[in-house]
């Protein structure tokens, strides 16, 4: 039984303060990701200039439209683990997600909202690893990336995200 004067547990059980380490976009499927100092996020649409931005639709998976795939994130710690545990060197531009963060438990955030710099995101689902990345990088990263291949999000409040911005709970 819950006593009437007890507070409900916080919605976000995982407290974190992370940092944006790298930002990348690309215009089309297969092209190398381009490193950016900042990205312009447009609420409900995507990242200005990116292949999956709604209206552009030039991504490898654009034939499978997904409203909750406006921006994707990836953990820097996963890149470190790939090298440590599997001897695979994968750079921040190779995983093909838009934002590489440090200190953010992405897998905990599905269904939750969080701040990425001045923008507000809602995590819709975990990203799947895909053979497409192996095809492009030529590296056997599929198996090691199962369950840690990043996060798909929709953009609730747009704005400019810069390298070095904080990533925080709402």
């Amino acid at each position: 039984m819950v006593a009437g004067n007890e507070q409900a547990p916080p919605r976000s059980a995982t407290f974190f303060v992370g940092v944006v380490r790298h930002l990348h976009i690309t215009a089309r499927a297969f092209l190398p990701m381009r490193s950016m100092a900042d990205l312009t996020l447009i609420a409900g649409k995507g990242i200005e200039g990116d292949r999956y931005s709604i209206g552009r639709e030039e991504g490898f998976y654009s034939h499978k439209p997904e409203e909750g795939r406006q921006i994707t994130l990836f953990e820097l710690e996963t890149l470190e683990a790939l090298e440590r545990d599997f001897g695979i060197e994968l750079g921040p531009r190779d995983h093909r997600r838009n934002v590489t963060v440090e200190g953010v438990p992405l897998n905990h955030l599905v269904g939750r909202q969080f701040w990425l710099g001045e923008t507000l995101l809602e995590a819709t689902r975990l990203s799947f690893p895909c053979r497409h990345i192996e095809e492009i990088t030529g590296k056997p990263v599929f198996d090691p990336l199962v369950h840690r291949s990043g996060l798909n999000c929709r953009i609730l409040i747009g704005g400019t995200v810069r390298v070095g911005d904080l990533v925080r709970n709402t």
Partner: peptide, 12 residues
Amino acid sequence: MTPRRPITTIRT
């Protein structure tokens, strides 16, 4: 516009 089929080539 949403492509109906997967993009399988690099557009050049």
